[in-house]
């Protein structure tokens, strides 16, 4: 009986909240800015606590269930913190071995793979001039030279100098990238830097509201807010627009560098479920062998 209710609360209550977001999203932000602040009355479902157990039959069974993590689901409709519900997190994603070395490799990879060095030096052939023999081979009492742009000369060419563009592109092995994500999520959760909220609906588009909320809850200073949907509601987009240290990101774009760049990571329930589903799929996929091997530029 209890389980039924729990399942119901997961399947029914949550989509209601989501559709509410979408409808407010579709309207023009400018015309809706004022009414949305007043309209954001708490939905009817708020009174029931949102308890989301992990369904291990559907999801992938973990190595050990005793290490499963539980986290509070917090509200976003007011500055004051209120616990809306409880979510059970999959241990293979949120309590994985914290491989700090793999996190470091991910950070290094993210920095390097898109970096193109523009440092450039000219060789003796490229430096202007130097075609003429500066002085005769013999009879001048000076050392023999064929060009004034040899590397021996001041203002001459450079041997083995940096040549641009030099790409530093490489790919980290696929499962190191997966492990980097699970490790970082686990580290963030262990260090109390991961918070789960019910959604990204805030009552106003005022940045001060978000500032107060972050100060009240001891988040931050820098905060990364992640939702499953890449279309964020107007209010939160407006509020975070002027705050350089509060950023929004869809869960498909979540990466190790951004998680570490921000002090606090805030995930919505939908983002948590999406991340769990994607990462557990990668950890259990049938064609995992095909993800190994050298990265080819034309691979699909």
């Amino acid at each position: 009986m209890l389980k039924n209710i729990l399942n119901k609360s997961r399947q029914v209550l949550y989509p209601v909240a989501r559709t509410f977001t979408r409808s407010s999203n579709n309207h023009n932000a400018a015309t809706e800015a004022v009414p949305s602040a007043t309209e954001a009355a708490p939905p009817a479902t708020k009174s029931t606590p949102l308890i989301l157990p992990q369904d291990y039959a559907v999801n992938y069974s973990p190595v050990s269930r005793s290490t499963a993590r539980q986290a509070w689901i917090e509200n976003t409709d007011a500055v004051a913190e209120r616990k809306v519900g409880l979510i059970e997190l999959h241990p293979d994603v949120f309590a994985a071995q914290p491989r700090v070395d793999i996190i470091q490799e991910n950070v290094e990879w993210q920095r390097k793979y898109r970096y193109v060095s523009m440092a450039h030096t000219k060789t003796r052939a490229e430096v202007r001039g130097g075609g003429r023999k500066p002085w005769p081979q013999k009879g001048m009492g000076r050392a023999r030279h064929g060009s004034i742009r040899t590397p021996l000369f001041k203002g001459g060419g450079v041997v083995h100098g940096p040549r641009s563009p030099t790409t530093h592109f490489y790919m980290l092995p696929f499962y190191k990238r997966v492990l980097g994500l699970t490790s970082t999520l686990s580290v963030k959760l262990a260090q109390d830097d991961l918070h789960i909220v019910e959604g990204v609906d805030i009552p106003t588009g005022d940045a001060q509201f978000l500032k107060d909320l972050i100060a009240e809850r001891n988040w931050g200073p820098s905060v990364l807010i992640v939702d499953e949907d890449h279309m964020f509601p107007a209010n939160i987009s407006q509020a975070t627009d002027s705050l350089g240290y509060v950023n929004l990101m869809p869960s498909f774009g979540l990466n190790v560098y951004s998680m570490l760049k921000h002090d606090t990571l805030v995930l919505t329930v939908a983002a948590v479920k999406h991340l769990e589903q994607r990462l557990l799929y990668q950890l259990h996929r049938n064609d995992a062998a095909s993800k190994g091997g050298k990265f080819k530029l034309d691979q699909v």
Partner: peptide, 17 residues
């Protein structure tokens, strides 16, 4: 089509069974 079961048989499972 009734032959769709033959197609389904050719699609690999997503995760390790």
């Amino acid at each position: 089509p009734p032959e769709w079961r033959f197609v389904e048989r050719l699609l690999p499972p997503a995760t390790v069974p």
